[in-house]
Every structure is written in C-alpha cells, then in structure tokens.
Design a protein around this nucleic acid. Sequence first.
DNA 1: GCCAACGTTGGC
DNA 2: GCCAACGTTGGC
Length: 155
Amino acid sequence: MKSTPQYWLMKSEPDEFGIDDLKSVGKEAWSGVRNYQARNFMRDEMKVGDEVLFYHSSTKPPGVAGVAVVASKPYADPTQFDSKSPYFDPKSKEDDPRWILVDLKFKKKFKNYIPLSKLKECSELEDMTILQKGNRLSITPVTKKEFDFICELGS
DNA sequence: GCCAACGTTGGC
DNA sequence: GCCAACGTTGGC
C-alpha cells in the first residue's frame, strides 16, 4: 500500500517569491511548476491541510524559512495559457491542461531561519530528499519526524 | 561564474 | 526506443 505523505518541502527563490511575500498575500497559487514529478505530487498526493516547509533556494544562504499549508484542491495552472507569462506552455490545451497546482497559505515564519548547512549537520535529517546529492526537485515529501524536527530547530 | 546532476527534446 | 545534445537547477 502506498503511503500518502502529509508533509512536504517546496522550494522558492526569495527574489521571486519568498516567505515574506507569502505572509503579506496570505495565500498564493503555486504557479510555474514545470516538472512532472513535482506536478504529480500536487495533483495526486497533496491534501488540503498538508503542511509544507517553505525553502528558499538560490539565495545566500539557502534554507528553510517557514511553514505553509496546502489550501486548495489541485487545479490547472492559469499561467500555462497566458502567452505573456514566462510559464506559458503552447502545447497545453485548455480542455486537457498539462500543469496543475495547489494554493498555499501562510502559516508561520521561523524565528530562526535554518540554513542548508545546518540541515546537513543533523543526522536526523540525513535521509531527506533535499539533502541527497543531485536533488533538484522543487517539491519533495518529508516525513513527520523530519518536519517536526525542523520546526523545532526553527522555533 | 562555474559546474555537476538531471530532465527534456529530437533525430535516427 | 535509444541516446546525444541541450537547457535548467541550484549549491558553491
């Protein structure tokens, strides 16, 4: 039987959209994911109420900035149909959308930002997908243990 | 700016 | 269906 993860880690570039942006808007459609594995997680496995570690990538230093919550069922990413969007996908059809997203809502910003270097030092986290060599996936499942451990580090 | 790792594309 | 070429991600 396949287990359904309840906890996730999602990457975002803070120059583009960071935890403070999520805090100020409250809720955001997670548009722009153009990777099938990541899409499948949103489409097939995420449930409203799942908790998400909000990770800042391509920044100094990279690390986990806070927590968000899945706030909608999966639906078609509107940016794929917008020819002016950088995420426009001419091969996607309105009646058969290729890219699916969920809404995220802000839960909290960690008091202590947890840099990637810190995550790497924790033996409790050594199996995390994000820490595996060569991992580039922008959305990955995390275990409850890992999630709780990281929340502890952040508070 | 570099580069390793990985995903996607397209010719055959 | 293979696989080389190319593009992207993302830490350093």
